[in-house]
Amino acid sequence: MPCHPDTKQAIDYLLGVVPIIISFAVAFIAWAQYKTNKNKLRLDLYNRRFAVYDKTLAYYQAYYSSDLDNEALRESATDFVRAYRESSFLFGRESSVYKALTEIKDTFGFLVEFDAKFGSESYDKDEFRAWSKIKASKKDPTKLMESLEQALKPWLDFQEIEK
């Protein structure tokens, strides 16, 4: 059965155009996957960075909460230290966030040790005075949390994440 010349031209035309259309479709799908993966990476980073703040806040609250026992404080301290170590990769060691977290780690570490040492048992008055001087030189933990929140603003700005 012979093919009509117009039909043969139409088939040749389709065979020439279809690969081009498929190429555009594949390119569009690749671009859409790129955008999706880029946004997912941004969201994952946002979540990991926010988790650092969340664990820091839990440690802060555990220290000041009178209804939590030492076990809860130790657990939140362990979670915080893990988040602190991770923060060097998420923010960089030179970032203001890492520096604020370092100050929080050092201050709360000292305060927990101070409370444990001078909380209930008898102690040497001279040693207490020396430790109290160091305690007085430490920044207020609330101010430390505020400085951390300020340092985190550019990292956790969700409008920037969406761009």
Score class of each variant (00 low, 15 high):
His4Glu: 00
Pro5Ser: 08
Pro5Tyr: 08
Asp6Leu: 07
Lys8Ala: 01
Ala10Asn: 07
Leu14Met: 09
Leu15Lys: 02
Ile21Gln: 08
Ser23Met: 10
Ser23Val: 07
Ala27Ile: 06
Phe28Cys: 04
Phe28Gly: 01
Ile29Val: 10
Ile29Ala: 11
Ile29Lys: 13
Ala30His: 05
Trp31Met: 11
Ala32Val: 13
Ala32Arg: 15
Gln33Tyr: 12
Tyr34Leu: 13
Lys35Pro: 05
Lys35Phe: 15
Thr36Tyr: 15
Asn39Met: 15
Leu41Ile: 14
Leu43Gln: 14
Tyr46Phe: 13
Arg48Gly: 03
Arg49Gly: 09
Phe50Pro: 03
Thr56Lys: 04
Tyr59Trp: 13
Gln61Arg: 15
Ala62Met: 03
Ala62Tyr: 01
Ser65Tyr: 02
Ser65Ile: 02
Ser66Ile: 14
Asp67Cys: 11
Asp69Ser: 06
Asp69Ala: 07
Asp69Glu: 06
Asn70Cys: 05
Leu73Cys: 01
Glu75Pro: 01
Ala77Cys: 09
Ala77Thr: 08
Phe80Gln: 00
Arg82Ser: 14
Arg82Glu: 13
Ala83Glu: 01
Ala83Ser: 04
Ser88Gly: 07
Leu90Gly: 00
Ser96Gly: 13
Val97His: 02
Val97Asn: 01
Tyr98Trp: 15
Lys99His: 12
Leu101Lys: 02
Leu101Pro: 03
Leu101Thr: 00
Thr102Trp: 14
Glu103Tyr: 10
Lys105Gly: 05
Phe110Gly: 05
Val112Arg: 11
Val112Ala: 11
Ala116Tyr: 07
Lys117Met: 11
Gly119Gln: 02
Gly119Ser: 03
Glu121Thr: 12
Ser122Phe: 10
Tyr123Trp: 10
Asp124Gln: 06
Lys125Cys: 04
Asp126Trp: 10
Asp126Ala: 14
Glu127Gln: 10
Glu127Asp: 09
Glu127Arg: 12
Phe128Leu: 08
Ala130Leu: 14
Ala130Asn: 12
Ala130Phe: 13
Ser137Arg: 12
Lys138Val: 02
Glu146Leu: 11
Ser147Asn: 06
Leu148Phe: 05
Lys153Pro: 01
Glu160His: 14
Glu160Met: 14
Ile161Glu: 06
Glu162Ile: 11
Lys163Leu: 13
Lys163Ser: 04
